[in-house]
């Protein structure tokens, strides 16, 4: 091995073969030691080097990186936070949907015994699954405990709340026509002040949800563009500060791909780290929100549990932010390198 090496070197120095064109020379090396696998290894090393050196560069200028990543992760956490809030609200309306319940608010002059009789008679209806009577006192007590106006209400001399009969129709009546008919008949009875199909409220909520979902999609699209531009601008500044290096690399024969590579990896890291930070921001916010939300859920007697990011969603979040980082950088590099002299 040593002998071969020495021969190689003397040949290099003494022989006019040195003057051979570069391409032939490279070919000679290929047959001598560097085979295809070596080239492949060199290529892999190039990528690995770009991956880690770009991360190292980010760490080396922490102020700039922290600023960029802070802005990006706020934008990303806004977007993903909206997504999560909507997912939670969706879950809420889905729960509501199952209970298409009718509330009958009785007139003030109707007595409690009369109300009981009315409730019993409704219970006879074959289309009804269950009936629940809420007396004035019960309503007040419930209101006191959950509303937070407890002490204020004790001041009141008379109980302002009406007697309420909650009617839950059977599932067979789920179709809207049957429900509407039932509602009509309740409204016509003399004891009832007003009859309210909670379904209406649910429908309204659902259409509000649809609108907010659409708005959130638009908003997320805008935030996505913001991420794209911020990442791109960071790369533009990075490119500016390393302009000399780019020029020198070009002058010793670097291709566009070679010059772009470390910058694309920088874009990837920025997006990736921002995605991870955004995940933490949103998760911490949800943890803070958990207790109040569960209190609220208790108020409505619901078994509502706050949704956090699932495994798939976490991967999606990080993948999307990394992709946006790379994409923003790529767009800027396409433009800037086209306009960097020399070609």
């Amino acid at each position: 091995m040593k002998r071969i090496n020495r021969r190689h070197q003397t040949q290099e120095v003494k022989q006019p073969r040195y003057a051979k064109p570069a391409r032939q020379d490279a070919q000679r090396t290929t047959t001598a030691g560097g085979n295809f696998v070596d080239k492949l290894k060199a290529y892999r090393d190039l990528h690995a080097h770009a991956l880690f050196s770009s991360l190292g560069r980010l760490v080396a200028s922490p102020f700039n990186s922290v600023m960029t990543i802070a802005v990006l992760s706020i934008a990303i956490s806004l977007a993903s936070g909206f997504y999560l809030v909507l997912a939670n609200l969706q879950q809420l309306t889905e729960n509501l949907e199952t209970s298409a319940q009718i509330s009958l608010f009785l007139k003030d002059e109707v007595s409690e015994t009369h109300a009981k009789q009315l409730a019993d008679s409704i219970r006879q209806n074959p289309g009804i699954q269950s009936v629940k009577l809420i007396t004035k006192e019960q309503a007040l007590a419930e209101f006191k405990t959950y509303s937070g106006f407890g002490s204020a209400i004790t001041v009141l001399k008379t109980n302002p709340l009406p007697i309420v009969i909650q009617v839950l129709p059977k599932d067979t009546l789920e179709d809207t026509r049957g429900l509407e008919d039932l509602l009509q008949s309740f409204q016509q009875s003399v004891e009832v002040d007003s009859a309210q199909l909670d379904m209406k409220w649910v429908e309204r909520l659902q259409s509000i949800m649809a609108v907010s979902q659409c708005a959130a999609t638009l908003l997320n699209l805008m935030l996505g563009f913001a991420v794209l531009f911020i990442a791109g601008n960071t790369i533009r500044l990075e490119l500016q500060s390393r302009h000399e290096e780019v020029v020198i690399a070009k002058l010793v024969g670097a291709t566009r791909a070679f010059i772009q590579r470390p910058f694309l990896y920088t874009g990837f890291w920025i997006g990736f780290i921002s995605g991870v930070v955004a995940w933490f921001i949103v998760t911490v916010m949800m943890l803070i929100l958990r207790q109040p939300v569960e209190n609220l859920s208790g108020l409505y007697g619901g078994n509502f549990h706050l949704l956090f990011f699932g495994f798939g969603e976490t991967l999606e979040l990080i993948a999307i932010s990394s992709a946006l980082g790379v994409l923003g950088s790529w767009a800027v590099l396409m433009y800037q390198l086209q306009h960097t002299k020399p070609a």
């Binding site: 090396t29 560097g34 190039l46 020198i248 010793v252």
Partner: peptide
Amino acid sequence: ALPLVIAGFGHQEITRRVRA
């Protein structure tokens, strides 16, 4: 080493040539 890295030479070849 820069021109060799750019031209895609392997690690050992780079070291050898840069030394030379």
